[in-house]
Design a binder for these strands. Structure first.
Length: 614
RNA sequence: GCCGGCGUAGCUCAAUGGUAGAGCAACCGCCUUGUAAGUGGUAGGUUAUGGGUUCGAUUCCCAUCGUCGGCUCCA
C-alpha cells in the first residue's frame, strides 16, 4: 500500500537532530540524493511563495522516498495547483540557482523571519537547544544557518546541492497534498503538506512511479473486491469486516495451520467471552489506561460489562483458576481472540486498521529459570510461522525500559537480557529502541518485508510485569512458597485481519496453492466434455482438493481468462484428447502449460506443492 | 478526531439546474469451441442518507454516514 512507501525517517531539518541515526539513515542523510530532495523541497517552497506571497512556511525535510514541505496558505490547494507548482519548479531548477549557506545569530534570524511565525518558533527552540530524532530536546544550543536560493531563504542547516543544476528537472514529481498538524500536534494549526519526490535520474523516478503503480495493483482493498475476499458495509459499520467465502477459506487454511503448529508446540487452546464486568477491567487497569479505546459499557442486571479490547485478563483468570505448581510451568494459553477497539474515524484502513479484529493471541506463564528458554522458543516459533507464509526477510525491534514503568528494575533487566540474547543467538537483525518499551514490559516486534520490499509489523512478543501484580498471580515453588510467574504476551500473525491484508499484498492475490480458495478449475472445451470434467472434479475433491468446474457456455479462451483473473493456480483443460486418455492438460496461472497427464499424476503434483507451501 | 478530495447500475466509469448513459458482470437465446474476452437480446438506478435554496436539484448549500490521501494514534 502506498502509505508504507512514505514512512518518514523521523529526522527534521538537520540542525534539530542532535541524536544518533542508524547507519542506513546516516548514509542516506550524507548522500547526494538526500541533498537533491532537500533542495527540491526548497525549490518547491520558492514556487509556492511566488504563487502565494503571504504563505507561512513550516518545515520541509527530505524523507525516505522524497520530500515534503508544510505551509499555511490562504486557500486549499488543488491538483491543478500542484501541476502548476511542479511546472514552475522545473523552470526554477533550470535557472541554475546557487544554494548559499550563511551562519547567523538568533537576532538576525528573527529579523529575517519576522513575518514567519513558524520559523520564529523554530528559532526560539534552537536558542535553547536542538532536538534529537524523536523530537526530544537536547541541551546544547545549535548554530543556526540559513540557505538562500533564488528568491527563497529558509532557516535550515542543509545539506543542499551547491546549484540547482544538480537537480534533474525531469526526475522530480509532486505527488499529493495532505493536511498535517504543525509539529505533529493535533492541538496546533492544521497546515497543508505537499509531498513530492526527486531522484538523480528520470529512470529512477520512473522506477519509483512504477513501484507505486504496482503497489496500487496489489492494494488489498482492490484485490479484496476483485477476488471477492471481504467487504465492509455502511450499514454494518466502519472498520467491521465481512469475510466472504473466498476470504474465509483462506483464513480457515491459515487458522488450520496455526492450530496444528500450536498444538505441536505445547500450547493449550482456550476460549473466552467477548464481554467482561467492569470490575475485571478495573483490576486489569484497562479502565485507567485504555478506556479511550474501549466501547461504552453495556448494562446487564445493574452491572456494567465492557466489550473486550484485549484477551489477557481472561487468560489470566484461567491461569488463576487453580493452584499452580512450579512443575506446571511453562503454561502457554492460546486463543484466536476477537477484540474490539475504538479507532478514531479517520484512521481506519481496509483490513490493516479496523475496529473489530481477531488476534492470534497467547500468554506464556513461566518461572525465572525458564525465561530464557521460553523467549528462545517463542522467537523461534514466530520466525517459523512467518516463514511458512513466504516472509523470509524479517527484522526485529527491541524496545527497552521506559522512564514511566511498573515492575522491579531487576525484572526489566533480566527480561531485556533474555530478549536480546535470543535475538543474537538466532542471528535475527535487530535495532534497539531504547526506552521504547510499554510501561508494563520490554518487547520485541518483528517486521516482515513483502514481495515489494515494504515493511509490515506483524509479530509482537511482550513481557508484562503489570498484570501478574494486579491479579496477584503466583505459583508454588520447590520451596513451598508462592512465587510470581513471568508473563509473556505474544501475537505472531498479529491479527487475522491485518495478516490477511498483508498476505494479499505480499502475494498480489495469487495465493500459493495451499491457501488458494479455489485450487483448480476444470475447463471443458465443449459441452460434450462437461460430464467427464465433473467426474475428474469429483476425483480431485475426493483427494482433498478445492475444485470448480466451469461448465458455462463460454468458449475455452474466456474460461481461461476468467480463471487467470481469479488467479486460480491450476487450470485443467479437458477436450477430446484428454477424455480419450483419462487425462487433464494443465495450465498454470503463470501461463506455463504442461501436456496432458493422468489425473493421478496431477493429484500427486498438487499435493506436493500444497505440502511444500508453494 | 483534524485538513482536503470523493460517493451515479453488482464492478469500472460517463453526463446535465429541466427527473440519467456506456463497457463488463447478471439473465434468456444462438454458436460447440484447444490455452487471456464468439454473438444477439433482456433486465437493472428515489444518482449514499436527511434537510435547505429553486418553478424544478442527481447537479448548488448544510448536516450525517461511508470512503480515499495525509496528520495524530495503533494489532
Amino acid at each position: 500500500m502506498v502509505r508504507s512507501l512514505f514512512i518518514s525517517i523521523r529526522g527534521r531539518c538537520a540542525p534539530y537532530t542532535g541524536g544518533k541515526m542508524s547507519d542506513i539513515k546516516q548514509a542516506y542523510h550524507d548522500s547526494q540524493l538526500y541533498r537533491i530532495r532537500h533542495s527540491a523541497s526548497h525549490i518547491m517552497a520558492e514556487a509556492v511563495l511566488e504563487k502565494f506571497p503571504d504563505a507561512k512556511f513550516a518545515i520541509g525535510p527530505a524523507i525516505d522516498d522524497g520530500f515534503y514541505y508544510d505551509f499555511d496558505l490562504p486557500r486549499s490547494l488543488t491538483t491543478e495547483d500542484l501541476a502548476e507548482i511542479e511546472k514552475r519548479m522545473r523552470g526554477l531548477i533550470q535557472s541554475h540557482e546557487d544554494f548559499k549557506r550563511t551562519e547567523i545569530g538568533p537576532e538576525d534570524a528573527k529579523a529575517i523571519f519576522r513575518d514567519q511565525p513558524f520559523k520564529l518558533e523554530l528559532i526560539e527552540g534552537l536558542e535553547h537547544g536542538g532536538m534529537d530524532d524523536d523530537g526530544n530536546p537536547t541541551d546544547e544550543p545549535v548554530p543556526m544557518s540559513i540557505y538562500s536560493s533564488g528568491g527563497f531563504t529558509d532557516l535550515c542547516a542543509g545539506p543542499h546541492v551547491a546549484n540547482s543544476k544538480e537537480i534533474n528537472p525531469q526526475a522530480i514529481k509532486l505527488l499529493n497534498v495532505a493536511g498535517a498538524y504543525w509539529r505533529g500536534d493535533e492541538k496546533r494549526p492544521m497546515l497543508q503538506r505537499i509531498y513530492g519526490t526527486a531522484f538523480e535520474s528520470k529512470a529512477d523516478l520512473d522506477e519509483y512511479l512504477w513501484k507505486l503503480e504496482e503497489a496500487k495493483k496489489r492494494d488489498h482493498r482492490k484485490l479484496g473486491k476483485e477476488l471477492d475476499l471481504f467487504s465492509s458495509n455502511d450499514e454494518v459499520g466502519a472498520g467491521l469486516i465481512l469475510w466472504h467465502p473466498n476470504g474465509a477459506m483462506i483464513r480457515h487454511q491459515v487458522e488450520r495451520y496455526w492450530e496444528d503448529q500450536h498444538l505441536a508446540h505445547g500450547y493449550d487452546f482456550v476460549f473466552t467471552p467477548h464481554i467482561g464486568k467492569s470490575s475485571l477491567w478495573e483490576t486489569s487497569g484497562h479502565l485507567k489506561t485504555y478506556k479511550e479505546n474501549m466501547y461504552a459499557p453495556i448494562e446487564i442486571d445493574g452491572q456494567e460489562y465492557y466489550l473486550k479490547p484485549m484477551n489477557c485478563p481472561f487468560h489470566i483468570h484461567i491461569f488463576k483458576s487453580g493452584l499452580k505448581s512450579y512443575r506446571d510451568l511453562p503454561i502457554r494459553l492460546a486463543e484466536k481472540g476477537t477484540v474490539y477497539r475504538y479507532e478514531r474515524s479517520g484512521v481506519m484502513h481496509g483490513l490493516l486498521r479496523v475496529r473489530g479484529f481477531t488476534q492470534d493471541d497467547a500468554h506464556h506463564f513461566c518461572r525465572e529459570d525458564q525465561m530464557s528458554a521460553e523467549v528462545d522458543f517463542v522467537l523461534d516459533f514466530s520466525l517459523k510461522m512467518l516463514q511458512a507464509f513466504g516472509f523470509k526477510d524479517i527484522q526485529a525491534y527491541l524496545s527497552t525500559m521506559p522512564e514511566k514503568r511498573v515492575g522491579e528494575e531487576q525484572r526489566w533487566h533480566d527480561a531485556e537480557a533474555a530478549l536480546e540474547d535470543t535475538l543474537k543467538r538466532m542471528q535475527v537483525p535487530y535495532e534497539v529502541d531504547a526506552g521504547g518499551g510499554a510501561f508494563y514490559g520490554p518487547k520485541i516486534d518483528l517486521k516482515v518485508k513483502d514481495a515489494l520490499g515494504r515493511e509490515w509489523q506483524l509479530s509482537t512478543i511482550q513481557f508484562d510485569f503489570n498484570l501478574p501484580e494486579r491479579f496477584d498471580l503466583s505459583y508454588i515453588g520447590e520451596d513451598g512458597q508462592p512465587h510470581r510467574p513471568y508473563m509473556v504476551h505474544r501475537a505472531l500473525l498479529g491479527s487475522m485481519e491485518r495478516f490477511f491484508g498483508v498476505l494479499i499484498e505480499h502475494y498480489g492475490g495469487a495465493f500459493p496453492v495451499w491457501l488458494a480458495p479455489v485450487q483448480a478449475v476444470m475447463i471443458p472445451i465443449a459441452e460434450r466434455h462437461n460430464e467427464f470434467a465433473h467426474q475428474v472434479a469429483q476425483e480431485l475433491k475426493d483427494a482433498g482438493l478445492r475444485v470448480q468446474v466451469n461448465d458455462s457456455s463460454d468458449r475455452m479462451n474466456a474460461k481461461i481468462r476468467d480463471a487467470q483473473n481469479q488467479k486460480i493456480p491450476y487450470m485443467l483443460v479437458i477436450g477430446d484428447r484428454e477424455m480419450e486418455a483419462g487425462a487433464v492438460a494443465l495450465r498454470h496461472r503463470s501461463g506455463e502449460s504442461l501436456p496432458a497427464m493422468p489425473v493421478a499424476e496431477f493429484i500427486e503434483l498438487a499435493k506436493t506443492e500444497i505440502a511444500e507451501h508453494i
